[in-house]
Amino acid sequence: MSTLPENALSAPPRASVHQPASGRPPGAARVALILLGKELRLELRTLESVPGMALFALSAFVIFHFALNRAALQGDLAAGVLWVTILLAALLAINRLFVADAQQGGFEALALAPVPPGAILAAKAAALLIYLLVLELLALPAFALLLLAQPLAAAAFGVLATLLLGDIAIAVIGTLVSALVIRSRARDLLGPLLMLPLLIPVVIGATSALSPLLAPHAPDLSSWLSATGLRWLAVLGLYDLLFGLIAYALFEFLLED
């Protein structure tokens, strides 16, 4: 935590040490990659987000087992439990996404460097996406092992595609909302309150896509796609795209001070 200001300031020169000192600022994509590297290095050193999310997801599965009093879930119920767990675990990471920047001078450092807002957005959203993917790498096998009625492997592609598109939405919206509430007094409360309604369409899309895949007689890929899968993947993809554009257009206004 306390290493952030030094980290944030020293990361760009260290990463671009191979480049000749031409004085020309690096392009936006390169800046985004450098910032993403900073985020991931920070996470690797502090381990603040991902282990907590994974542990939370595991606890949530156990809680769902006892609260629903079921040994195995399938269909709608399985899809719902999986998505609620992912969503709530994501809130943990979203809540602390900008905390270090706000409290320890990261925003000031970014303001001093010629960093385009889009690069910050992309880096933060990509970091969040990676956290979510790592979380699912750990949580999905646990879910299949603990709660799912039938093996997951048959429906793997559909499940992964749905999760990926849903994760992108969570990452983009999470980054925007996290930056939106970071300067307010009650950010720990406001963040989730803003996030959840914005993500209800994602939950609708993702659970609608997943529930046939987790049903007892899961359809094969092509019949799933032609029945409902493709439509919901398209809805999720469009939602990602639209919110990506909105976040890209508005993010600069959140970084002005």
């Binding site: 939106l180 509430v181 206004f253 002005e256």
Partner: peptide, 26 residues
């Protein structure tokens, strides 16, 4: 319902207006 809580949880008047506008557009 979170618009007003968000708005009035930001102290600075100018920043409050700007962040509220970002919320309103989203």
């Amino acid at each position: 319902c979170t618009y007003q809580p968000l708005r009035f949880a930001i102290e600075d008047r100018e920043r409050q207006a700007r962040y509220a506008s970002v919320f309103a557009i989203t």
